[in-house]
Amino acid sequence: MGGTDPDLPDGVHLTAVDDLFAWGKEHSLFYLLFATACCGIELMQTGGPRYDVDRLGMIPRATPRQADLMIIAGTITHKMASRVRTLWEQMTEPRWVVSMGACANSGGPFSKASYSVLNGVDKVIPVDVYIPGCPPRPEALIDGVMVLRERVRRYRTLGLRDRDPQVIAGADDDFGTHPGKA
């Protein structure tokens, strides 16, 4: 992002405002503490000392009003769906959603057999990144976060550019760029 000009004083750096905003957002993806099933265990583990997503600037927030990212970690029932929607509506723009695991993606093991499980959280809120797995390991969650960070980096706060199409973490490289695989 940007570059230095030899005619400028030391420490002065030229960049586009959008790039600066994107840089800031990308490195401070505060996520909402929200977990409904066993994916939540993996989410907690990801935040624990072994995987330590704090190093990526990801700090858990206890209120949606302070969160940039909502990680749907677990099964969402029809009864829970309206609460998920309310939490998402309380988040400030720009907001991001990661659907973690088979249940949040499509209903997973409950998709055919259960009367009460929502078959995919994308029926009630827009999802940016889907992470397959049942549940995904912390590596998979971090992989999905890296894909999301690429998306955040391309987000134009002041510009009119639309969001990128949705991507599936861990899938073939045809699905968008990936910092670890480029």
Partner: peptide
């Protein structure tokens, strides 16, 4: 367990699955 406005009682063996709940389709 279920929402107040849920229709039917699911552990009855002739229970019919919901087509939609509050406008959200059950099937994918």
């Amino acid at each position: 367990l279920l929402p107040e406005d849920w229709e039917g009682h699911p552990l009855r063996k002739d229970y019919a699955y919901p087509v939609a709940y509050r406008g959200v389709a059950h099937a994918r």
